Amino acid sequence: MQLAVQLALLLVPLAASAHESRPAYLALQETTPGQFSVLWRTPVLAGMRLPVILQLPDRVKNLKDPVVSELADSLVERRWVDAGPGGLAGERIQFGGLQLTITDVLVRVQMRDGTVSTTLVTPSRPWIEIAAAPGLLAVAGAYVLHGIEHILFGFDHLLFVLALILIVRSRRILLWTITAFTFAHSITLSLATLGVVHVPGPPVEAMIALSIALLACEIVRMQHGHLSLTSRWPWIVAFTFGLLHGFGFASALTEIGLPQADIPLALFSFNIGVEIGQLIFIGVVLGVLACAKRISVPAMITRGALPIANYAIGSVAAFWFIERLAGFAS
């Protein structure tokens, strides 16, 4: 009987862990270079703690004694550790005993540069390897792609560039106009992202739509033979509106986030990506226009194509302006 009781007592923790499906949780936050605050939470069922042991690398040392708190459904342990100059990059953290359970471990790692990663560790692979910090080339490549994606999927910015193409007939002046637009939005993008200037996002988005509608109006004026500031000095208008569009780019970049250790590189790479995306779009538009000139199309169709395109741009921009204006006004 005594043997049966002892055996039953030994089986209780195993039974608790076998039926425990709530995940354990590990949070690592780098506070200073190489030093981390650690939060380790393990579930408790029927008064028994999940038999999973957090195993940090051997060279990691405690800065002070751990603090353990008992909650109704879990046991929370807080540590403050020093991983040395190299930090935890490339190191493996193991969870002893996890393979004997059906429980997962949710791991969240936040580095000093602002990067955050979340990983789910399963019993079949009871360890996690902390990813090394990305190199300069990796950071540059990632933000160049972000810039390309943003401009190619930012339809309001593309419509603005398309309107500039329809206004400027000279390729040389178009080059200067697009350069002025790029230079202007690079200025406000940098200032807004670095926190030097703060402009609310919704009004900026509404004004971007209005800038497209104004360009559409200028195209109509040019078709009727009226000269204006836009037709004479398009790069001045492109620069002015480019300052506005830069704030729109900044809101997108803020959502992506910037690596704190490589902010200048990330900003420069994002701008390069935006410029590449613009050049791709301009190349496609000019290619389509060149092909259209080589194809014998009835004159009536060619005369009507530009007004239709212009009114389509203006109508979409006006809709966006009203929609965005109503959005932040309410």
Rank of each mutant, 00 (worst) to 15 (best):
L7M: 13
A8N: 11
A8E: 14
L11T: 02
A15N: 12
A18I: 09
H19F: 13
P23I: 04
P23K: 01
L26A: 02
L28H: 02
Q29M: 09
Q29Y: 02
G34I: 07
Q35R: 10
W40Y: 01
V44N: 02
L45Q: 08
P51E: 03
V52P: 10
I53N: 03
L54G: 03
K61S: 09
K64M: 04
K64P: 00
D73L: 14
S74G: 03
L75S: 05
E77I: 04
R78W: 04
G84W: 05
P85D: 00
L88D: 06
A89C: 09
A89Q: 09
R92Q: 11
F95R: 10
L98I: 01
I102Q: 12
V109P: 02
V109S: 00
D113S: 12
S117M: 11
T118N: 04
S124A: 09
R125M: 12
P126Q: 00
I130G: 02
I130P: 11
G135V: 01
L137H: 13
A138G: 06
A138R: 14
G147Q: 06
G147L: 10
G147S: 06
I148A: 04
L152C: 08
L159Q: 05
F160I: 13
V161W: 12
R169N: 11
R169P: 09
S170L: 04
R172W: 15
L174W: 11
T177C: 09
T177W: 14
I178W: 06
I178S: 00
A180F: 13
A180K: 13
T182P: 13
F183K: 04
L194T: 10
G195F: 01
G195Q: 01
G195E: 01
V196D: 00
P202C: 05
P203A: 07
E205V: 06
E205S: 03
E205D: 10
A206C: 01
A209Y: 01
L215V: 05
E218Q: 15
L227M: 11
L227D: 13
S231V: 13
R232Q: 15
P234L: 03
P234G: 01
I236Q: 07
A238H: 11
G242D: 12
L243F: 08
L243K: 10
L243E: 06
G246V: 09
F247I: 14
F249C: 06
A250V: 08
S251G: 08
S251D: 10
L253E: 09
E255M: 11
D262G: 00
I263D: 02
P264T: 08
L267G: 00
L267C: 06
L267E: 04
L267P: 07
G277I: 07
G277L: 10
Q278R: 09
I282M: 12
V285S: 11
V285A: 13
L289E: 15
K293H: 12
A299N: 10
T302I: 08
L306R: 15
S315F: 15
A318F: 15
A318W: 10
A318E: 02
F319Q: 03
I322Q: 01
A326W: 15
A326R: 14
A329K: 02
